[in-house]
C-alpha cells in the first residue's frame, strides 16, 4: 500500500475536485439557462417572422392591435425592471425592509403587465381572433403567450423569494436567488423589446 502512495499523484494532477465556495458557479449556470431560453424565443420569433403575414383572409395586426395598450404594458415592464434594480441595491446595503418593499412594487408592476396582457388576449379571442383563426394569430399567441408565461412564473418566483427573505433574511442563499431572478427579470424585459418591436410596431407600419 505504501509503495502506491509514494508516487504522490498530487504532484501531477489534482487529487480532488477544485473547491469553489458554495454557489460560485450558479450565476454562470443560470446565464447559460437564460441563453438557451433566448434561443427558444429566437425560434418563436422566426416562426412569427415566417407566418406573420399569413392572415388566412382573417384580421391583420392593424385590425387587432391597440398600440396604447402595448405602450402601457411596455411602461409597466420597464418600471418593474428599474424597481427590481433598486431591490438589488437595497440588498447590497443589507436593507431587508427596503428589499422587500422594492420587490413588492416590482410584483405589482409584473401583475399589472399580466392583467393587461390577459385582457388583450381575452379581447382578441372575444373578437374571434383566437389562436385557431390564422397562422399569424397562432404564431402571435405562441410568442406573446410564452413571454407572458415567463412573466407569470417570474411573479411566482418573486412571491416565493419574498416569503423566504421575510423568514430567513438576506442570507447568502437568498442573495444568490435574488441575483438569479434579477437576471431573469431583466432578460424578460429584453425579450419584450423584441416583441413590441417586431410584433406590434412593425405590424402597425
Amino acid at each position: 500500500m505504501s509503495t502506491v502512495t509514494q508516487t504522490a499523484p498530487g504532484d501531477f494532477w489534482e487529487v480532488e475536485p477544485h473547491h469553489h465556495h458554495e454557489g460560485a458557479s450558479t450565476s454562470i449556470g443560470f446565464w447559460i439557462y437564460l441563453m438557451s431560453d433566448c434561443l427558444m424565443f429566437a425560434v418563436l420569433f422566426a416562426v412569427f417572422g415566417v407566418l406573420g403575414g399569413s392572415y388566412a383572409a382573417g384580421p391583420g395586426p392593424k385590425d387587432l392591435f391597440d398600440l396604447e395598450l402595448v405602450a402601457l404594458n411596455t411602461a409597466f415592464l420597464l418600471l418593474s425592471s428599474i424597481t427590481y434594480g433598486f431591490a438589488m441595491l437595497a440588498m447590497v446595503k443589507e436593507n431587508t425592509r427596503g428589499t422587500l418593499i422594492w420587490l413588492g412594487i416590482t410584483l405589482v408592476f409584473g401583475l399589472a403587465f399580466l392583467a393587461v396582457e390577459i385582457y388583450e388576449f381575452q379581447h382578441l379571442i372575444h373578437l374571434g381572433a383566437g389562436p385557431q383563426r390564422s397562422a399569424f394569430l397562432s404564431a402571435f399567441f405562441a410568442l406573446v403567450g410564452t413571454h407572458g408565461l415567463h412573466v407569470a412564473f417570474g411573479c411566482l418566483w418573486l412571491v416565493t423569494l419574498m416569503i423566504q427573505i421575510r423568514q430567513r433574511g438576506l442570507i447568502p442563499a437568498n442573495r444568490r436567488r435574488l441575483a438569479c431572478l434579477s437576471m431573469f427579470w431583466h432578460f424578460l424585459d429584453v425579450i419584450w423589446i423584441g416583441v413590441f418591436t417586431f410584433v406590434y410596431l412593425l405590424g402597425m407600419i
Binding site: A24, S27, A71, T74, A75, L78, S81, I82, G85, F86, M88, L89, V92, A179, F196
Partner: peptide
C-alpha cells in the same frame, strides 16, 4: 465580491431614462 457588478442608483437611472427615450 461575487464577481458581479451590482450597479448603482445612477447607472440604473441612466439605463431607465435611455430606455424610456428609446421606447
Amino acid at each position: 465580491d461575487d464577481g458581479h457588478d451590482h450597479g448603482s442608483v445612477r447607472s440604473y437611472l441612466t439605463g431607465f431614462i435611455l430606455s424610456v427615450i428609446l421606447t
